[in-house]
């Protein structure tokens, strides 16, 4: 891949490393992180136990006893950091994006959220315009966190970017679609939450019975499309 930036590599804990690419929300950086995560996760480094990608950083968890088998005379934690430095360089010179770019999901939304009127007033836009702006972009999954299966999607058009509530609601229902700054996302389960709610989707973002319980993964993309409340009920029935 071109235009690689060199990340900072630091310990996150005694069994995990943090790889950081600055401190900004940027699609190029996100794609680079996706690429590196795929490269590190090929399964050739059996000392790596988990890879957690985020907005502009990713963490690599390792098994110290496995590292001991690899590191020879080197200090195990220093070995992990220098090994990761090398692997990230190798990932940079590897042309293929392993495993493609993730999936594109089309997610239906009934735009009748309880904060729509307030956003309309704040942003001086009618509800129809808010829906058009929200559905006009393909969003990238920058990170999954906060709750199981909660995907941070972005970036949202500045015209509808509203800050989160200063006082979070004690309960936001599963399927609620919200906006917080330039981020948008769907609550996968009932939860306290501070995002401004614009609508709801009948699609299950989190299915605990599945072996991969989160519908979305880091590197996937999402496009929202509007549905009526009747269509919402119909789709939810299935």
């Amino acid at each position: 891949m071109e235009n690689q930036t060199t990340p900072e590599i630091k310990l996150l804990s005694g069994r995990s490393v943090l790889i950081t690419y600055g401190n900004e929300i940027d699609l190029q950086v996100s794609m680079q992180i996706y690429h590196v995560a795929q490269f590190l996760g090929r399964g050739q480094e059996n000392w790596i136990t988990e890879i957690v990608p985020a907005y502009c950083s990713l963490s690599v968890f390792f098994d110290l006893s496995q590292v001991m088998q690899w590191c020879g005379e080197s200090h195990p934690l220093e070995w992990v950091m220098s090994r990761l430095e090398k692997l990230i360089r190798d990932a940079g010179s590897s042309q293929t994006v392993l495993g493609g770019r993730g999936q594109l999901h089309a997610i239906p939304v009934c735009y009748d959220g309880e904060d729509l009127q307030e956003i309309s007033r704040l942003k001086n836009l009618d509800v129809q315009a808010i829906v058009e702006i929200h559905t006009s972009r393909v969003y990238a999954v920058f990170m999954i966190g906060f709750l199981p299966g909660f995907a941070y999607l972005g970036t949202v058009d500045e015209r509808i970017a509203v800050p989160r509530h200063t006082k979070p609601r004690t309960k936001v229902s599963a399927g609620s679609v919200g906006i917080a700054g330039v981020q948008t996302g769907v609550y996968p389960m009932d939860s306290p939450g501070g995002w401004q709610i614009i609508g709801r989707t009948p699609v299950a973002m989190f299915n605990p019975a599945a072996s991969t319980p989160s519908l979305l993964r880091h590197g996937d993309s999402v496009r929202f499309y509007p549905i009526s409340s009747d269509q919402f009920e119909e789709l939810r029935g299935h």
Partner: peptide
């Protein structure tokens, strides 16, 4: 800070200058 991974044992500094140590049921990012 833009949200980023954390681990059990991570000591975070909250905006009021107080610290929190993440324990077993911590969220995966912070």
């Amino acid at each position: 800070l833009i949200s980023s991974p954390v681990d059990v044992g991570t000591v975070q500094l909250l905006p009021d200058g107080q610290a929190i140590v993440l324990m077993a049921d911590h969220q995966t990012t912070g």
